[in-house]
Amino acid sequence: MNRRLFLTQAAAVSAAPLLTAADKPSGLVDCNLHLGPHPTRALPEIDEAFLAKRDITEAWAGSFEALLHRDMGAVNERLVKRCAASSRLSAVGSVNPRLPAWQTDLRLCAEKHRMPMIRLYPNHHGYTVADDVFAQLLTEATKLKLRVQIVAQLEDQRTQSPLMQVPPVDLKPLAEAMKKVPESRVMVLNANASMITTALRGCTNVWLDIAMIEGVAGVENLLTSWPADKLCFGSHAPFFYWESAALKMQESVLTEDQQNGIRLGNARALLG
């Protein structure tokens, strides 16, 4: 073994434990988790042990049941009960504006469950962000001080069940929709680099997560074109291995401010 190879291997060995390194900033908000049964996969439960092992201090969790269930009030009730199992879990209820009386679900999220935000699945629920019903929902949610998470996609179209094919959300009309509700605060989950550089360019008051940011050094590269104070840690666990998002932070060279913002501060600012 030559010296250079030895040094390389030594570096590899020393890099591996970085996932649990003690010198990373304290506190981690994972803004993109789901609980409950997934329609096509048996996935591990996100519980206190899962969160504690990964030093996740705050976990914003939606419900997989929201994708297909129509009794959304019951879905959100069960989500709140599941989240009661850990003080780290924060329930993010869902509203489907194609359901009759969706306004009741929205109000319950805000007033009964005291949720800080809701999570929307436009393409699973059959509407676009250009539709009037989305504008109504955004307006009503903003009046209730609810932040709005929009799930751009959940799974690569190429691997989806042929009986449940859902394309990514067309985000191009989002900027226009948000102009009509200037106080609205929106986080787009699972956007990829292509969506960000085309459809979301020019959007203000939009936060993103890193779960589907791909390419080598993807986070570092994204920050050359997206504001550092609008990017948050999101794992899309348990559908994705949680370690994917954690390792993305390691693969990119980030300043301390950027690290702190993505891990904690930017998510807090969204709520603030």
């Binding site: 996932l19 791909e214 998002a245 390792l247």
Partner: peptide, 17 residues
């Protein structure tokens, strides 16, 4: 890689039970 991150693919093994 480079179209994929190393991170997302390493996670399939690092994160596996």
């Amino acid at each position: 890689s480079g179209g994929r991150s190393f991170a997302s693919q390493l996670a399939k093994v690092h994160g596996a039970q």
